[in-house]
Computed example of a mutant assay.
Amino acid sequence: MSSLNTVTEYQFNFSVNGPQGESDGGFILTSLAGVTDTIALGQRPGLLHDPNGAQTMADPESPVVAAHAQTESHRYTMHFPDHAPRAHDPHYAAFEAYRRHHREGAVCFVGERVGTRHCAGSLELHHAVLEFATANAADPRALHRDFPEISETATVEEVATWLESSPGEFRWLCSFHHRGHGGAHTASHADWTAQLYVPGLIS
């Protein structure tokens, strides 16, 4: 392969017809002059340029971004509807009954996929779709699209009953994947979902 210069240079020539006749001119673009745009320098992205103007395809595997750690934080505002305190929720007993009945043999939803060695803490039952505090504002028509058992005209009471008793609403998670750094209540949806398949993605 030809050796490559660290400086990219292209010359442009032109002719101008004017009252005094034809005159020639030109200019040179060079990366040393601060021109970095590949199109302005006459280069096609993904190509390497040698001193003779030849262009060769760049190695598709280079450059590579090295493995690295990156701190993430997310800040936003939640708009909760009016709701009773959780301790006064008449449907909480149904939630507790489901938890007790299904606790034996349960495994963290994330650990089931990438291994429980990435889990920490005790198992907790997570509302995978709606939390109690949001139920009063849920649109039954929107819920019906993904959960046909919910009527498009379901009342607030019917939605509340469903979210505390339906298997489709619950997911077992260890405390780390529930409320910790890798938790469903902490990490972004994209990051939380990715850790289902990328072991040790979040710490």
Rank of each mutant, 00 (worst) to 15 (best):
S23K: 13
S15R: 14
G180L: 14
G111K: 06
G46H: 03
L4G: 02
P85R: 08
R117F: 00
L130A: 07
P51C: 02
V110M: 09
F147D: 11
L47N: 08
V107A: 09
E169P: 00
L163H: 02
P140F: 04
T155R: 00
T56D: 05
R103A: 10
H189T: 14
A138N: 06
R145E: 13
A106D: 02
I202P: 08
Y10P: 01
Q55N: 04
H144A: 15
I39P: 01
A184P: 06
Q70A: 12
H177Y: 03
T6N: 14
P63L: 05
H49C: 09
L48S: 06
T30S: 14
Y10D: 03
F95I: 04
E164H: 14
L123W: 05
H102F: 05
R100M: 11
W172N: 00
R117Q: 12
P51E: 14
P140C: 06
P85T: 12
T161D: 13
A160K: 06
A69N: 14
S203V: 14
H91G: 02
R117M: 04
E112Y: 10
M78F: 10
P199V: 04
D24Y: 12
R117G: 05
V159F: 04
P90V: 12
L143N: 03
T134S: 11
P148T: 03
